[in-house]
Design a protein around this nucleic acid. Structure first.
Length: 517
RNA sequence: GGCGUCGUGGCCAAGUGGCUAAGGCAGCGGAUUGCAAAUCCGCCAUCGCGGGUUCGACUCCCGCCGACGCCUCCA
């Protein structure tokens, strides 16, 4: 099975072959931990997860690394992100939006970062993001990689030694883009085409001391910054791009890696700068062979933004705090909790190179699909006692499924193999269970995280258990009423069960209730 | 202005130079049901617009229209 991916470096679909056969080294740009991660972040992260899980299904050993950005890099207005976060945290604590005692001292950036890192990992685990289970060994913190020869300071020194960086009059260490002929190769922005300040985000004072407007900061001496480290260029903090170059090299143990992923917005400048830094420092001709970018997520057809009221964190979705305008234009809240499996499926079910549209309707569709899959799986489990046969990719259905994914991660095509197969027939449930487990090792939706050592269990709360018991009681009463042909009473009871969030399923084999997702 | 991605049924979304244009959701018809739900069976598109290449294009080329992203905080 030839694997092919769209490579942003060449803007075409190319055959993928790992540098070392059977072993894939991949790096994903991870979250900043000054706030809860939103579903757009997770769309990008879960794309990386899908990629990784597919490569594993295809027989590769995947070494996946993703960073946690916890350095409070500068933002406009001379305020750093940790300072900004500190103020937000204080407000949220006051208003009760953050749990009591969540962050003891909001003025301590390490406490803020720790809190949001834990929140991120928790969300990521619930969404079946495999790498979250590999914390901390594959999920490094930027703040742990500032110092030392193998750290950011070491790489900056190397760049200075090799003439790729210079110290400007204001003491800031800049990367000289003119020293790196390939700068612009990834984004297609050649130096003469980069319109200075076209994005309107560059302040004149920052530009004053650069040799070229495209030069970017590697180290900024600044005593006032909250997070600061001593360096040969003064106490201060590192530039944004350097952390990924350093951590990829340090944790993956190679100058050249197979795959680097991130959101499409990171292509320029972030990834362009990473390439310049890594290749400049190591002398290697490439950093990653494949650069793969996920497109943005939209919510109800629009770019997610706080002011449009369509900005959701993962936890907003889990709790059902998601709203939509109905036909008359009034706002309707979804209001009911969304299972992590449903959220995951919603976020992975469309191709990574398309803008995916996150909608309440989509969420409902996904819930129906997950419900079906859970029942399908439960049925196989029951028939087999959980004993799966041995299957590999030569199995025709699995082969089609994997081949679809091998074609630039064509998830839609893979799902179009899955759906009719689920519908049956399944003469050998042991074999079907095995096939499903393989499929689910990639999809990770029923259940979430099948195949990982410590798959997270969605534990039902006491209240949920109580509700279930009550509903089961109603079901018994309902069946009794039906037996007495008291249909009015039976219908009332059925309504009660449905209102409690269950589905009543009746067939020749009997009646049962299922929690409705 | 520069660099890219994209435009397929009510919605989501694959795909191919020519065989019946996947799959899912919704809808419709039927089976089942006390009535429903779930389930099962069946039905449901000529591919943004205009040219060109070709025996033949939705698929290749050109133009146009439209959507979206990036161009130094952003997944």
């Amino acid at each position: 099975m030839q694997i092919r991916f769209y490579n942003s470096l060449t803007n075409q679909v190319e055959d993928f072959t790992p540098i070392t056969p059977g072993k894939v080294k991949m790096y994903s740009c991870g979250p900043t931990v000054y706030d809860f991660a939103h579903i757009g972040n997770f769309r990008s992260f879960l794309f990386g997860d899908l990629l990784r899980r597919f490569l594993e299904l295809a027989g590769n050993e995947v070494h996946h690394v993703m960073n946690i950005t916890d350095v409070g890099h500068m933002v406009e207005g001379e305020q750093d992100k940790m300072e900004e976060a500190a103020e937000r945290v204080k407000v949220n604590k006051k208003s009760g939006r953050l749990p009591e005692g969540a962050i003891g001292d909001p003025n301590d950036p390490y406490q803020i970062a720790k809190y949001y890192t834990e929140a991120f990992l928790e969300d990521a685990k619930r969404l079946g993001y495999k790498i979250a289970y590999e914390y901390p060994q594959c999920v490094p913190h930027a703040t742990d990689h500032v110092e030392g020869e193998a750290g950011m300071i070491g790489m900056i020194q190397k760049l200075l030694d090799k003439g790729h960086a210079y110290i400007a009059k204001d003491g800031v260490v800049y990367y000289s883009v003119e020293s790196f002929p390939d700068y612009g190769k990834l984004s297609g922005n050649s130096l003469d085409k980069i319109q200075e300040g076209a994005g309107d985000r560059v302040s004149a004072s920052d530009q004053a001391h650069k040799k070229h407007p495209g030069d970017f900061m590697l180290w900024k001496p600044d005593q006032h910054h909250i997070m600061k480290w001593d360096s040969p260029w003064g106490t201060g903090y590192p530039g944004w791009h350097i952390e990924c170059s350093v951590m990829a090299k340090a944790l993956l143990g190679a100058d050249k890696i197979d795959i680097h992923t991130g959101g499409e917005d990171l292509k320029f400048p972030h990834h362009e700068c990473e390439i310049a830094q890594t290749c400049g420092a190591t002398g290697a001709d490439t950093f990653a062979n494949f650069w793969i970018h996920a497109r943005f997520l939209f919510v109800e057809g629009k770019k997610m933004s706080k002011s449009d009221g369509n900005f959701y964190t993962a936890r907003d979705v889990f709790s059902g705090n998601v709203q939509v305008k109905d036909e008359s234009g009034s706002i309707v809240k979804l209001g009911k909790p969304v299972s992590p499996a449903v959220a995951r499926f919603e976020l992975i079910k469309s191709h990574y190179r398309n803008n995916m549209n996150f909608t309440v309707k989509g969420l409902r569709d996904s819930a129906a699909t997950i419900q079906k899959l859970i029942e399908f799986r439960a049925d196989l489990e029951e028939k087999t006692g959980g004993q799966a046969a041995e299957v590999d990719l030569s199995h025709p259905v699995l082969n089609q499924f994997a081949s679809a994914l091998a074609d630039d991660l064509n998830i839609s095509d893979a799902l179009s193999v899955m759906h009719p197969w689920i519908r049956g027939p399944h003469p050998d449930p042991h074999e079907s269970l095995a096939v499903w487990q393989k499929m689910n090792s990639v999809l990770s939706i029923a259940p979430v995280n099948e195949g990982t050592a410590d798959a997270i269990q969605e534990v039902a709360s006491e209240q949920e258990v109580a509700t279930l018991e009550q509903a089961e009681g109603w079901l018994t009463e309902m069946l009794a009423a039906k037996a007495d042909k008291d249909y009015a009473a039976s219908d009332v009871l059925r309504e009660k069960i449905i209102d409690a969030g269950f589905e009543v399923q009746q067939s020749k084999e009997g009646a049962s209730i299922k929690k409705k997702l």
